[in-house]
Design a protein around this nucleic acid. Structure first.
Length: 552
RNA sequence: UGGGGCGUAGCCAAGCGGUAAGGCACGGGACUUUGACUCCCGCAUGCGUAGGUUCGAAUCCUGCCGCCCCAGCCA
């Protein structure tokens, strides 16, 4: 894979220490998504961490679906998650489902009951909440807490047999209702849920809770380092309790790190879903979405995402990474991988008045001067051309190197032209520029008699191929992601701009997902959803950096 | 005002008692047939804050301040 410049982080330090002290003999990690949504860049951080950590020390990483809640999960997500992890470039060792372990979990729950460490509770959900107490007040014990082992055993079995309705009973751990850690106040281990499971069908009507299931899953798989996000820190005592009381042979250790936040976007499933449902975006794979599928359609590469994930580091500090760091890595990755071609997004016609009407030249131009092995393509030149409106100003400010009346610019890989006349319509809009070219200045002839400050891109009008260009801006306006319910107010209404322009003829056979650097404009990818045989649609992956700041 | 965490530059982040890495961003310059790329240079007398220990503290101790998480039969 690509060069890994694994930087130090506290989890890696722990692993190194555990190996050194022989606490563990090998490193086993896992990526444990719940199949209830699409993966996003935040998941990528966890994926890269888990897979590369194990990989660095010759260990293993499992992909395990944490499917303990049939009401929220769906098999549709399983495929998309597998696809995304694979696309990111990782091969899992084992592919598992928490639901594969349901029988084992049930047996461990029975063990807990026999040890008098768990009991069946008849309190309603509301009552359980009331009995739990508050952050500052201890809870009180359930009246069902002291049922006999025999009665608990029988009740739990009847729960499994389906003799009770949803919510009628739960299995709870018997820990400490006065614990300052809310998670230890007799947490629910199993709930009744008469729902069909994507994997186990109707075999079960009781399902284990995360806090009970997760440590057992890890232990069964021999996971040594169970890496999760910060909000589970409070759950660690319970995680350890389950491992110990269920008498698991393997004792994984849970380590928490801060999840990724990015500026100008949102990462929560809920908010992402809101964007989709409200129609602000075109679906989970809209190129503006921070989902893996969105980034893929946008044109990001797995390499760029991986490098980004390494660079941001792993720590416990809540942080929000500047989205421009992600942009940095896609530019860096694409610079020597993409052919460089020309397209005009906002066309304005240029007529070369001293160029014969029936004449036409074909220039053979390198696809990428920095990667000559990409070869050359023919670029036709003729009397009428298109250039970008941004490259002409009738009344330019100082330091404007582009075209204006009386000024000369070089047409990239062609001639130097001079603007002589500006044609306007009735309303005063510039509709055409009349220029003359200097035949002596043709590219490749070694002409050095005079230099011009500006070089602009162009397309021969006669040969131009119409295309649609989609330019993107951040989904969320500048100020930090608010917590408000109406975060939709922060959505950038101008996050997509659609332009009808022209591209050079060499691009006419481009296929979906082909990438280009459109010279002076940015990196683009052929959209795989809206491109048809008739028309190519290009998404701008990222603009080129620019130090040009002159305002019109 | 219970418990668990976290505070190093605009944004990430290394640092683990010996005198503040690196990246992004930003500013300046060189080069340039992409105002791109590349290359130089600059960018924390300072590590939330106040004390203390020490020859020496971002690192150790104490107090304070700020921010995040926890009261699902979600994960």
């Amino acid at each position: 894979m690509d060069n890994k410049n694994t930087s130090s982080n506290f989890i890696r330090d722990i692993v190194i220490e555990d190996l050194k002290s022989s606490k563990v003999k090998e490193v086993v990690t896992r990526f444990p998504p719940e199949p209830n949504g699409y993966l996003h860049i935040g998941h990528a951080k966890a994926i890269v961490l888990n897979f590369e950590l194990a990989d660095e020390f010759g260990g293993r990483t499992n992909l395990r679906f944490d499917d303990t809640n049939p009401t929220k999960e769906d098999t549709e997500y399983i495929e998309s998650i597998k696809e995304d992890v694979a696309w990111l470039g990782f091969k899992w060792d084992g592919l598992y489902f928490a639901s594969d372990y349901f029988e084992e979990m049930y047996n461990r729950a029975v063990l807990l009951i026999k040890k008098n460490k768990a009991y069946v509770c008849d309190l309603s959900p509301e009552e359980i909440r009331e009995y739990r107490g508050t952050l500052t007040q201890p809870g009180k014990e359930s009246p069902y807490r002291n049922r006999s082992v025999e009665e608990n055993l029988e009740l739990f079995e009847r729960m499994r047999r389906g003799e009770f309705k949803d919510g009628e009973k739960v299995l709870r751990a018997k820990i400490d209702m006065a614990s300052p850690n809310m998670n230890m106040r007799d947490p629910v281990l199993y709930r009744i849920c008469h729902a069909s499971h994507h994997n186990t069908g109707d075999k079960w009507c009781i399902y284990p809770m995360y806090d009970f299931a997760h440590p057992i899953e890890d232990a069964i798989e021999g996971v040594t380092h169970s890496i999760c996000t910060l909000e589970f820190e409070d759950h660690r005592p319970l995680y350890d309790w389950v491992i110990k009381e269920c008498e698991m042979e393997c004792q994984p250790q849970q380590i928490e790190f801060a999840r990724l936040n990015l500026t100008n976007t949102v990462m929560s499933k809920r908010k992402l879903k809101q964007l989709v449902d409200a129609g602000f975006v075109d679906g989970w794979d809209d190129p503006r979405m921070p989902t893996i599928s969105g980034l893929r359609r946008r044109g990001y590469t797995p390499e760029a995402i991986r490098k980004f994930c390494r660079e941001i580091g792993v720590a416990k500090t809540n942080s929000t990474v500047d989205h421009r760091l992600l942009e940095h890595f896609i530019r860096e990755d694409l610079i020597d991988k993409t052919p460089r071609t020309m397209a005009v997004l906002r066309p304005i016609k240029v007529v070369i008045t001293n160029y014969p009407e029936d004449k036409e030249e074909i220039f053979e131009v390198d696809y990428n001067l920095d990667a000559p092995e990409m070869g050359k393509r023919p670029v036709p030149f003729s009397r009428e051309l298109y250039i970008d409106r941004d490259d002409f100003m009738e009344n330019p400010p100082k330091k404007y190197f582009r075209l204006y009346p009386g000024n000369e610019v070089r047409l990239k890989d062609a001639y130097i032209i001079k603007c002589n006349e500006v044609i306007k319509d009735d309303k005063g809009n510039v509709v055409e520029l009349r220029c003359t070219y200097d035949p002596e200045t043709r590219s490749g002839t070694g002409f050095t008699k005079r230099r011009v400050k500006g070089t602009i891109h162009w397309v021969s009008a006669r040969h131009a191929v119409p295309a649609e260009f989609r330019l993107y801006e951040p989904l969320i306006n500048d100020d930090a992601e608010g917590d408000s319910e109406n975060f939709l107010e922060q959505v950038n209404p101008n996050s997509m701009e659609v332009l009808q322009g022209f591209m050079e003829p060499s691009m006419k056979d481009a296929r979906p997902m082909d990438r280009f650097q459109l010279i002076r404009i940015g990196y683009f990818i052929v959209d795989n959803k809206y491109t048809t045989d008739e028309k190519i649609v290009l998404n701008r992956i990222v603009a080129l950096r620019s130090s040009f700041k002159v305002k019109k």
